[in-house]
Design a protein around this nucleic acid. Structure first.
Lengths: 134, 134
DNA sequence: CTCGGGGTTGGAGCGCACTCCAGGTCAAGC
DNA sequence: GCTTGACCTGGAGTGCGCTCCAACCCCGAG
């Protein structure tokens, strides 16, 4: 699989993929005779997991640490386990924070909804939105 | 209240408070005879809400739009309502994404836990962690 | 009257995570 | 044989959100 396909499948841009490889998050990636990158299924799986780490807010330094440990083999399983457990706690805290904020948001939205001129309690009557209320 | 107190209460740094004022997120803030900022309770409330918007990932441009609308008074209530509703949807989606990632993380953690050398199934026996298994 | 400890400003600098670009190589199709 | 287009490299540039800084001001204590 060439880089364009891999980019399409992972959602990372080609530039980002090359950047990730350069900083040691991805790879080493195989090359064909022309020096072009050749991605495999296993790269796809790893990139997918990286995407999860990224989506949960792990900074690149953290991902690098994880990737480096992973490259060292099974001896680093305890280390990686600990890192993921710590990261998991952060994610749980983040979810809690967001839920907390969500309730604040909902309160505010309800306040505004109550202040809106007239569009409450009107579920049907969708025709003629600017219509005369009578 | 002077800026140092306000910074302590809001969790924003003094630099950030001045920056937010400069870009129109905060203020106008009263000044005393020496030109020093004087913050009020209402500023505290607004800053708290801004903190929620920030915590939920609203970019500064979004917060500016909201702040600008807010400064225009009640005519912009529909606009602000719509903005918050849209933002709320983003937050809900983000929470869902995080929860999704969390389950991936949990699977991985479980896999690693099963690979750990010997520290599973040992809830008691916390003394002598390096002890002889016999 | 001096000193110190707050505060003020405008503007430069920073860290992160990309993103873009110039200039080059290679393989296939016409 | 030439063009086209996807890829390569190293390095510069970008956008966001601060963060830091120099130079200055003002007030109160000693």
């Amino acid at each position: 699989m060439q880089i364009s396909d891999f980019a399409a499948k992972t959602g990372f841009s080609e530039d980002t993929l090359r950047y990730y490889e350069k900083i040691g998050l991805l790879g080493p990636i195989l090359r064909d005779s022309a020096g072009h990158r050749v991605y495999r299924e296993t790269d796809l799986i790893w990139a997918g997991f990286l995407g999860r780490l990224k989506a949960t807010g792990m900074p690149i330094l953290g991902m690098r640490a994880y990737a480096r440990a992973r490259a060292q083999g099974d001896e680093t399983v305890p280390e990686r386990h600990a890192q993921l457990v710590a990261h998991r706690a952060g994610v749980v805290a983040r979810i809690a924070e967001l839920q907390d904020c969500l309730s604040v948001l909902d309160t505010k939205i309800a306040t505004y909804a109550a202040m809106l001129p007239d569009e409450k309690g009107r579920k049907n009557d969708t025709n003629d939105p600017r219509g005369n209320p009578a």
